[in-house]
Amino acid sequence: MERHNKIYVAGHRGLVGSALKRELEKQGYNNIVVRTSEELDLRDQKQVESFFKVEKPEYVFLAAAKVGGIQANNKYPADFIYDNLAIQNNIIHQSYIGGVKKLLFLGSSCIYPKFSKQPMKEEYLLKGELEPTNEPYAIAKIAGIKMCQSYNRQYGTQFISVMPTNLYGENDNFDLNNSHVLPALIRKFHEAKVENNPSVEIWGTGLPKREFLHADDLANACVYLMNTYHGNEFVNIGTGTDITIKELALTIKEVVGFEGELTFDESKPDGTPRKLLDVSTLKKLGWKATIDLKTGIQQTYAWFLNSYESIRK
């Protein structure tokens, strides 16, 4: 990408999209086009078609998606499969119609089988059953990968896909009803500290292991791959290390400064036992993460504190 090329970041107000926009601006890209969901409903085929005809983006980062944790995926499975399929179908197809030079599609590590061998290599896709709690979302993301690959094969497009691990950072969703585990725990510990509660409850046993990548690291990797990667296979993006949910909770407890106890509600689902990505392909391509977990949590908590009043509304 040249600094003057028109770059469309779909989903620029979300965790990933906002990090991508910051990273692009930091690297000197000065022709970035964005639209809010109020300005452009990405589920609407006609609106997306009109947008591409008018704006004619040369590069596209497809970070727009309906996302959420276990509770949200369980409660709104139809929304998760419909919205995500509609968004990616419209953007990928119009990128082809509009002659976009290159598109990067962002998936999720939940595409891998529930009991996948660890760490998860790209070749393990579709080698077993998915985790039931987020199957609709995972199926939509798998369809996005296959759509990019299919358009490349049939039309000679340059549509690449990346699969990030669990993400966190500024502009994350801290809603306790539908957020992911790390931002939910930051808010739980903060509010327990403020209210002098004796304990914080964690869903499940605390034993599942998860890998966490700061959104700023992901954004840097995406821009790097957009400029350097031309293969048809998707690429895992992660740190290559994981910790238990209990260890995560203890780290967040320390960062927040909560002095009470942890309790575990074992009646709640654990989700997938372990989700660690094999990042050997990414390392061979010349990129690795630089933000360690504790530093990243400290940065995210600082942003949360500055944004707390708006988050609560």
Rank of each mutant, 00 (worst) to 15 (best):
R3H: 14
R3T: 11
R3E: 14
H4S: 14
V9S: 06
A10S: 15
L15A: 04
L20V: 15
E23P: 06
N30V: 07
N31T: 04
T36F: 06
S37R: 13
D41L: 12
D41N: 15
K46Y: 01
E49V: 10
S50P: 00
F52Q: 06
K53A: 09
K56Q: 09
K56D: 01
P57G: 11
E58T: 04
A64M: 04
K66L: 06
K66Q: 07
K66P: 00
V67C: 10
G69T: 03
G69D: 08
I70Y: 02
Q71V: 07
A72W: 02
N73E: 12
K75G: 00
A78N: 10
D79T: 12
F80C: 13
I81M: 07
Y82M: 05
D83H: 06
D83N: 13
L85Q: 12
S95C: 05
I97Y: 07
I97S: 06
I97T: 12
G99H: 06
K102Q: 08
K102R: 08
K102I: 08
L104H: 03
S108L: 09
S109T: 00
S109A: 12
I111H: 02
K114T: 01
Q118W: 10
E123V: 14
E123P: 02
Y124P: 07
L125V: 13
E129D: 14
E131A: 09
E131I: 00
T133A: 14
N134R: 02
E135P: 01
A140T: 10
A143S: 08
I145A: 04
I145Q: 06
S150E: 08
R153D: 12
G156H: 02
G156E: 09
Q158P: 01
Q158G: 05
F159Q: 10
I160T: 15
M163N: 15
M163T: 15
L167Y: 05
E170G: 06
N171E: 11
D172L: 09
D172P: 01
L176K: 09
N177E: 10
N178C: 12
N178H: 05
N178S: 15
S179V: 02
H180R: 01
L182C: 11
R187T: 06
R187E: 13
R187F: 04
F189S: 06
A192I: 02
N197M: 03
P198T: 01
S199E: 14
V200T: 05
V200P: 02
W203A: 15
T205A: 13
T205F: 15
F212C: 11
L213D: 07
D216S: 14
L218V: 10
A219Y: 00
V223R: 04
Y224T: 13
L225S: 11
Y229C: 15
H230G: 13
G231M: 00
V235M: 03
N236Y: 13
G238N: 09
T241K: 12
D242S: 15
E247Q: 15
L248N: 10
L250G: 02
I252H: 00
V256E: 11
G257F: 01
F258M: 11
E259F: 00
G260I: 01
E261G: 04
K268V: 07
P269T: 04
P269S: 03
D270V: 00
T272L: 06
T272A: 15
R274E: 13
L277W: 08
D278A: 00
V279L: 08
S280N: 09
T281P: 01
L282F: 03
L282I: 03
G286D: 11
A289R: 05
I291S: 10
G296Q: 12
I297V: 14
Q299A: 14
W303R: 03
Y308L: 15
E309H: 14
I311Q: 07
I311C: 13
